[in-house]
Amino acid sequence: MIKILLFLSLLMNGFNCFAKAKQTITIRLEHRLNQLPLSGNRSTVNTFNDSLTVYKWQYYLSGFFVTDSISGKQITIAKTPVLINAFDTSIIILEVPKGRYSKIGFTVGVDSIYNVTGVQTGDLDPAKAMFWTWQTGYIHIKVEGNSPQSKAPFKKFTYHIGGYKHPFNTNRRITLDYTNNNRPVNINVDLQPLFNVISVKDNAGIMSPNQAAINMADALPLMFSL
């Protein structure tokens, strides 16, 4: 009997150490083009009167966090950056300590530590083509498509926004209210605010960390809403 008690207490200890109560939060991403669901066939018009269609849209989300609704404390969620393909990724599952939260957030981009420590794996594998080989660093968001106003070959536009170093750090933090605890979080991600800050006529290609990339990065927070 003593043995059984001993075993049980060991078991309980084990639970305490390894299985702190957890809950999952499901994030549903709804990718949109000017409020309508994303489609390669749909076009949109930006504030410069350029018409744009999109055939590629990928980006990294990282640095996920939630804010405790009572203490206001921010809890960082350990998770390596996730590569989102807007044409086929829609769900991210986060594991958080059991509790009630008032805010949820993340960074669009890839933290500098992954940019300076050699070749990474998984979603960060340079073979995913979200990595500049000639100038080390991740492309945080890649949007490619066509526009009749583009002066580039094949009427393409190519916006590769990245850069982790001052003054061209394009990581942008997004914080959203999280009121419906225990329910999936539906986040609308719309390209329109990004397109509204660039004239395709004047600049159909951004492919390095520079001021134009910063201007676009500054529009990233406007893309995310509940």
Binding site: G118, V119, T133, Q135, T136
Partner: peptide, 15 residues
């Protein structure tokens, strides 16, 4: 432009 020896070979491979 390259900040780590490990990522260096990727530049000539893909250029």
């Amino acid at each position: 432009g390259i900040n780590h020896l490990d990522v260096q070979p990727l530049a000539p491979i893909t250029a």
